[in-house]
Simulated assay, not measured.
Amino acid sequence: MNDFPEIDYQVIFEHAPIGMCVSKNRVMQVCNAALTSMFGYAREQLNGQSFQILYPTPDEFERTGARIVPIMSAKGTYSDERIMRRADGELFWCHVIGHTLVPENTHAAGIWTFEDLSSKRKASAELSPREREIAALLVEGKTSKLIGKQIGLSPRTVEMHRANLMKKFAAATSSELVHRLLGMVHDH
């Protein structure tokens, strides 16, 4: 009586319209087609690789990994929007969501999704790793004080980076900077 075909989870995973992967200790175990095409790698180049190759720098990989732990330990999930790196070196904004399968050891095993935001938002390659990190947190609406606390910098240092970002994006106010980072205001 059931006309609906058997649900094949492997087919669903493989053909999902969003980048997905399963990880163990921040190493990609298996990636789907959307993820490999988004980052411009062949599947065999990603499976078994550290997530580090998807980050602009090793330092950003380390800092993001550390930032994820307390949030994922508390909630079981983590999400943010950050600048990632394709195989050809192009930087792009990406919405990342992770779910841990081992709550007491957040990086032990997880399921991650990646959504390419580049059509809505352009990444600026002229930013330093710290500026990219601060830009991602500003986009979330965080204050300099909160950003400083989260990434271990003084609010004054965060303010200095914010001022540099405002100069680079020719933004007169913090909200204008956020709009430019989000790609809502295009350069003249």
Rank of each mutant, 00 (worst) to 15 (best):
N2A: 14
N2M: 10
V11H: 07
F13P: 05
H15E: 14
I18F: 08
I18W: 05
G19P: 04
G19E: 09
V22P: 02
S23H: 11
K24F: 13
K24M: 14
V27E: 04
Q29K: 15
C31G: 05
N32H: 10
N32L: 08
A33Q: 11
A33S: 09
A34S: 10
M38W: 08
F39P: 02
F39K: 01
E44P: 09
L46N: 01
L46G: 00
Q49V: 06
F51I: 07
F51W: 10
F51Y: 13
Q52L: 08
I53W: 01
Y55N: 03
P56Y: 02
P56G: 04
P58V: 02
E60R: 05
F61Q: 01
E62F: 14
R63K: 12
T64K: 10
G65R: 09
G65Q: 03
G65E: 09
A66C: 05
I71A: 03
M72W: 07
S73L: 11
K75V: 08
T77C: 07
Y78T: 07
D80K: 09
I83A: 00
I83D: 00
M84Y: 02
M84K: 02
R86T: 11
R86K: 15
A87T: 07
E90F: 09
F92D: 04
H95S: 15
V96S: 07
I97E: 14
I97S: 14
H99Y: 15
V102R: 15
V102C: 13
P103T: 03
E104L: 14
N105T: 15
N105D: 15
A108Q: 07
G110D: 07
G110L: 10
G110W: 06
W112V: 08
T113D: 05
T113R: 06
L117A: 07
L117R: 12
S118E: 03
K120S: 03
K122H: 03
L127I: 01
L127Y: 00
P129E: 13
E131D: 04
A135P: 04
A136E: 08
A136T: 05
A136Y: 01
L138V: 06
V139R: 08
G141R: 10
K142V: 00
K142M: 13
K142W: 13
T143R: 13
T143C: 05
S144R: 08
S144A: 15
S144W: 03
K145T: 13
I147P: 00
G148S: 10
G152E: 10
G152N: 14
G152V: 13
L153D: 08
L153G: 02
L153R: 12
T157Y: 06
E159H: 02
R162L: 00
R162Q: 02
A163F: 12
M166I: 07
M166S: 04
M166A: 03
K168V: 02
A170N: 12
A170P: 06
A171Y: 11
E176D: 09
V178R: 11
H179D: 15
R180M: 09
R180D: 02
L181P: 00
L182G: 03
L182S: 00
L182P: 01
G183T: 06
V185D: 01
D187H: 11
